[in-house]
């Protein structure tokens, strides 16, 4: 299938009072048309920043995209000015995003109609009435009952799950090519999480869009994503198809991540193993592998050589890993 978006060597840094934070440090990945991929990693590993960088939504200062290319429909998105016309036509029009916090991601003082019709007016040039009709259709499509009327409500009249439904409807309203879901269900309870993921994948399939799920929850990913990228400390440490990563994880971090997630298909009572230590502080990091202090497989080479690049594993798959050790 054709590649829709290709990110190469993306580097996003934050200039803070305490030092330089390399939040995203040379990340490359791609997404095909109508594909669902997942970017997995723990809090602060740079997975959200890598997505916000695509949309050029990094607050500057302190943040800055210092290097890389983001190829989308034959153009490098990073050549566009952050708030220029070209970038704005991509944002919400071609690439849309659903954020982590449904409770705070909608403007509390504007009705849903005003918030939902905005992008329809900008990107599809709709008039007020037409946009309203379309917005309330979308609201019903994401399962808001009585959408005709409830579109005049304010966000505080909706629950968290409903607000996230609204966010999904809003994001998909202009038929984007890519929907980025940045931890879309983290703030919600488990049953709502499942419903929303189903809804999101359904809607994305209906709109023939691609989906990027950003999450720290491997369980979420397993069912929906065709390919996975595992991030640690601003870099991708392992990538491959779901089958490859869940079947034969190769990076010590991925192995450790899987060991601490319970699985329903397990027969014996396996003990869950937490990852020892703490996620690294991204300020002024040493050039060696960032997982080294927590790694049970570490060798002398790991301590002396710089952090290895991703290398393709043997076989005809798409399995890449950045580790010296053959686990």
């Amino acid at each position: 299938m054709a590649v829709l978006l290709e990110v190469k060597n993306l580097k996003t840094q934050f200039y803070t009072d305490r030092g330089l934070v390399k939040a995203v440090d040379g990340v490359s990945y791609h997404i095909d048309e109508k594909e669902t991929i997942a970017i997995v990693g723990e809090s602060g590993c740079g997975k959200s920043v890598s997505q916000l960088s695509i949309m050029q939504l990094i607050q500057s200062p302190p943040g800055k995209i210092v290097d890389g290319t983001i190829l989308f429909e034959g153009r490098d998105l990073l050549e566009y000015e952050a708030n220029g016309d070209e970038m704005r036509s991509i944002r919400g029009g071609k690439i849309a995003i659903v954020f982590q916090e449904p409770m705070t991601s909608l403007n509390p003082v504007l009705t849903l109609e005003r918030q939902m019709t905005e992008s329809l007016k900008i990107h599809l040039g709709m008039e007020k009435e037409e946009a309203r009709t379309r917005a309330s259709e979308l609201l019903s499509a994401v399962g808001i009952p009585d959408a005709e009327k409830r579109i005049d409500d304010y966000p505080h009249q909706y629950s968290g799950g409903m607000r996230q439904r609204v966010m999904i409807a809003m994001a998909l309203s202009c038929n984007p090519k890519i929907l980025i879901a940045d931890e879309p269900t983290t703030a919600l309870d488990v049953t709502t999480q499942a419903q929303l993921l189903e809804l999101m994948t359904d809607m994305v399939a209906r709109f023939k869009a691609s989906l990027v799920i950003v999450t720290h929850n491997l369980g979420v990913v397993a069912r929906y994503a065709q390919r996975l990228y595992v991030m640690y400390a601003g870099r991708i440490v392992e990538s491959g198809t779901s089958k490859e990563i869940f079947g034969t994880p190769r990076h010590p971090y991925t192995i450790a991540l899987l060991a601490c997630v319970p699985r329903l298909d397990e027969e014996d009572d396996r003990k869950l193993v937490p990852i020892t230590g703490m996620p690294p502080n991204l300020i002024n990091m040493a050039p060696v592998c960032a997982f080294l202090p927590r790694c049970p497989y570490s060798t002398e080479k790991c301590r002396q050589e710089p952090w290895p690049d991703l290398r393709k594993l043997d076989g005809d798959g798409q399995h890449y890993v950045s580790c010296y050790v053959d686990t």
Partner: peptide, 19 residues
């Protein structure tokens, strides 16, 4: 967060600020 959402829709700076 909701201002980031407003940006993510592709609004102009003027519209983000005023609305």
């Amino acid at each position: 967060d909701y201002i980031r959402t407003a940006w993510s829709k592709g609004l102009k700076e003027r519209e983000v600020i005023a609305r």
